[in-house]
């Protein structure tokens, strides 16, 4: 690569790499969610009946609380990337798009806080 001619005004502007980072984050969080879903469904179907004791008993364990929280935080990042793509594809006026994107971020942050409250209520 001709890196020597790549200084000052000739510098190649290639962005802040957020494209690759978000692309990768969406895939990593997807894998975490797949594992979580399989564990949750396995527990759900192997239990003899769907009662409060068995359901809350699973969520009462510390490791499952932490696993759930990590999965949900990953989910919200995943949602951010996907919903941002939708706004970018279909909403062309910059002001409306920015408003929707900000609303999405704030809403997902609120959901994250709510998730903490739910998980540690049992």
């Amino acid at each position: 690569m001709a890196t020597k001619n790549n200084i000052g005004p000739k510098r190649l502007v290639v962005g802040a790499h957020y494209g690759v980072r978000d692309w990768l984050a969406q895939r990593v969080t997807a894998i975490v969610m797949v594992i979580y879903t399989v564990i949750l469904l396995g527990t759900f179907f192997s239990a003899p009946d769907f009662s409060y004791e068995s359901w809350a008993g699973l969520f009462a364990r510390q490791w499952f609380k932490l696993f759930s929280l990590v999965t949900f935080l990953g989910l919200y990042y995943h949602v951010w990337v996907g919903v941002r793509d939708i706004w970018m594809d279909y909403v062309k006026p910059v002001g409306v798009r920015l408003t929707l994107q900000i609303a999405t971020v704030l809403w997902l942050l609120a959901c994250a806080a709510w998730t903490v409250q739910i998980l540690w209520s049992v």
């Binding site: 809350a56 949602v79 996907g82 919903v83 959901c111 998730t115 739910i118 998980l119």
Partner: peptide, 18 residues
Amino acid sequence: FLLLPFLLYLLQESLRSE
């Protein structure tokens, strides 16, 4: 994404108490 609050609400009600 749109029905996320409904699902979180159901999760909350299913876990908080008997």
